[in-house]
């Protein structure tokens, strides 16, 4: 198993853990939201990597004749690509909601530093 065979998985794990590290040490809620987006992009890389096949083409067929399924099966997996699309949409909605929350936190508490939000401390 060469490095190329695990490279995509390494990138996915790196993005996930790097993003989570950024959230853990964040001093700014906007920064934390961006870090969450980075952690989430690790899942895109993971999904696309799982569906990849060496030398395969995209799962979109050109031309006006249906391809012969048996002979033309060399496309990458469309199911994980569709899931990645879902993932991207959910990430965008979560980002929008969290940014709206950050706006309200900044207005109510006058700070974006999570460590200074003493009223939220458990």
């Amino acid at each position: 198993m060469s490095i190329l065979h695990v490279y995509a998985y390494l990138v996915a794990g790196w993005l996930l853990l790097g993003g989570a590290f950024g959230i853990a040490r964040s001093r700014n809620l906007i920064h934390a939201v961006v870090c969450l987006s980075i952690a989430q992009s690790g899942t895109y890389v993971l999904l696309i990597a799982i569906g990849y096949q060496s030398g395969a083409s995209p799962p979109v067929f050109g031309g006006s004749t249906p391809p012969d399924v048996a002979a033309h099966s060399a496309v990458v997996d469309p199911v994980v690509q569709a899931m990645t699309l879902t993932d991207v949409v959910v990430a965008a909605t979560v980002t929008a909601l969290l940014l709206a929350l950050a706006v309200q936190v900044a207005k109510r508490h006058g700070t974006l530093d999570p460590d200074e939000l003493t009223s939220l401390r458990g």
Binding site: H5, Y9, G51, P59, S73, V75, V76
Partner: peptide, 18 residues
Amino acid sequence: PFGNAFHPYRDVAVAAAI
């Protein structure tokens, strides 16, 4: 292994879409 040719969901989904 990464990039292998075993994608059962792919085979089913491509056939259904076509």
